[in-house]
Design a protein around this nucleic acid. Structure first.
Length: 263
DNA sequence: GCGACAG
DNA sequence: ATCTTGTCGC
């Protein structure tokens, strides 16, 4: 199956249409047995205002693919800012699955042409995430994203979107609920309840630490609901967020602070 | 029509 | 996400 690249310079309606077009490609059975996964990746994004992109690294393959769809005509058609003052800063960390040690960290900056709209997050953060992924030397066997997978209005959240575009199995681990209903899980680490949307099982409400708010885990692509939850739980150390996402967040925050200072 | 609403 | 100090709890 080829990579279904599309433009990210789209209107909100086109974005929803893209999600409906691609959701059928999501594979909800465990594609990989994370027992054999060597490297695990985690991604997180923060935003910069009025900080020029000083990237020196050549554009990644993902960016090239996206550029072909980035014609001025499309920007015009989508009625978006010619030169946004806000850019997304994405960081990807790669951990050794066996030891949990940090193997690689990369980052990329991309202009933001899309506003934050619940359900359309990937159109805001996607370009930066894809650009960062393209700079990796160590290719992760699984990616963990800070957002939803199929626990989404159209069953195609950030984790699913990135998973389909890159081919890397993925899981979404959101800090709060986007949609669906669930019972309150027990207060002990490891307790969980089903997250359902329109009567369908789409994820888990998982307690990753004793007495802390739960996280919402759902398959991105290549995972079953149970598999996604087991995977996230296996990535949890002593914090609420699983290590891949927690570390990625830690690094973007530090990098952002650094970039702002050097400006 | 009235709420809900990843980051 | 982002703007922000101290503060309560394990």
């Amino acid at each position: 199956m080829e990579c279904p690249f599309h433009s990210f310079y789209v209107s909100t309606e086109e974005a929803k249409e893209i999600q409906r077009d691609l959701r059928g490609r999501v594979e909800l059975s465990n594609t990989i047995s994370f027992k054999d996964v060597e490297f695990i990746g985690g991604a997180d994004v923060s935003f910069l205002t009025a900080v020029p992109d000083s990237s020196e690294v050549p554009a990644a393959d993902y960016v090239h693919a996206l550029d072909s769809a980035h014609s001025p005509e499309r920007k015009q058609q989508a009625e978006m800012e010619p030169e946004p003052s806000v850019s997304a800063l994405a960081v990807i960390v790669v951990l050794d699955a066996a030891t949990g040690s940090l193997v690689e960290t990369v980052h990329a900056q991309a202009p933001v042409y899309f506003p934050y709209i619940p359900g359309l997050l990937s159109f805001r953060e996607g370009p930066a995430v894809l650009a960062a992924l393209g700079k990796l030397k160590t290719f992760p066997g699984v990616m963990c994203y800070d957002g939803c997978g199929i626990a989404h209005p159209r069953g195609f959240g950030l984790a699913s979107h990135m998973g389909i575009l890159t081919g890397i199995p993925s899981v979404g681990c959101a800090k709060s609920r986007l949609c669906g209903t669930h019972d309150e899980p027990g207060w002990e680490k490891g307790n969980w309840t089903e997250l359902r949307f329109k009567k369908k099982l789409v994820g888990s409400c998982l307690r990753t630490r004793d007495n802390v708010r739960p996280v919402f885990v759902s398959p991105g692509n290549g995972f079953s609901v149970d598999g996604a939850r087991d995977f996230v739980m296996a990535c949890v150390d002593k914090y609420r967020l699983p290590e891949p996402t927690r570390l990625a967040h830690k690094y973007v925050t530090a990098l952002k602070k650094e970039l702002i200072t050097h400006t």
